[in-house]
Amino acid sequence: MREDLTDAELERYARHVILDEVGEEGQLKLLQSKVLVVGAGGLGSPILLYLAAAGVGTIGIIDHDVVDVTNLQRQIIHTTEEIGEAKVSSAAEKIEALNPDVEVIEHRMRLNAANAVEIVSQYDIVVDGSDNFTARYVTNDACFFAKKTLVSAALVRFEGQISTYKPHEGGPCYRCLFPSAPDADLVPRCDTVGILGSVAGVVGCMQATEVLKEILGIGTGLMGQLVLFDAWDMNQRKIKTKRDPGCALCGDHPTIMSVR
């Protein structure tokens, strides 16, 4: 384990190092951390760019999809030239251009019951910016079994929800809050009801900030708190959450014994 930053690192990360709460020690933590970002879309774009800029040493990106023209209104890590290219490759190129200190691992696939625990286990922290409930439950369950911190957010129209799930530290998991998904057709999706592009940026940046705080061990994190952000009137509030002892995954008598 290194104890000092190189001169080049001291220069690049000078505005981090000068923060008392980060310093050289904190920047080394960032450089040695491994973060998996699920989804290189509206949330994933700012998350990936800010984590890369911050010098998170290893960034994994998991996404099976290719860049579509309708993504570009908000997914700012991709460009017009890259329509049709794999999102993981498009994102990896931008990260490498932004910060060559970062090692990028491309997982061009969906996170599923068969691969989730193995992939998640390779990282310290997982960030959920996926766009469907199936992926959200798979990500949550895999993080629970692998004992990984999950920084999760979701969007629709002008609103976002953000929380951090750490059942391994006594906090709730995603299933404690939402034991099961609503019927898919009852819940609006970005592709059916829309999303104001910059709202994905705001919420993704909040998520990136929570990831950096978790790595650095500073500030008050979002374990046990659900942030509700509404850009319509620029309102933000927090709901206190807690573990459900009856949770099928992390409760006292679990019925979910593996990712499914």
Partner: peptide, 10 residues
């Protein structure tokens, strides 16, 4: 009482 619906978009 507030009933919160989860969002799935990302």
């Amino acid at each position: 009482v507030e009933i919160l619906t989860p969002m799935q978009g990302g």
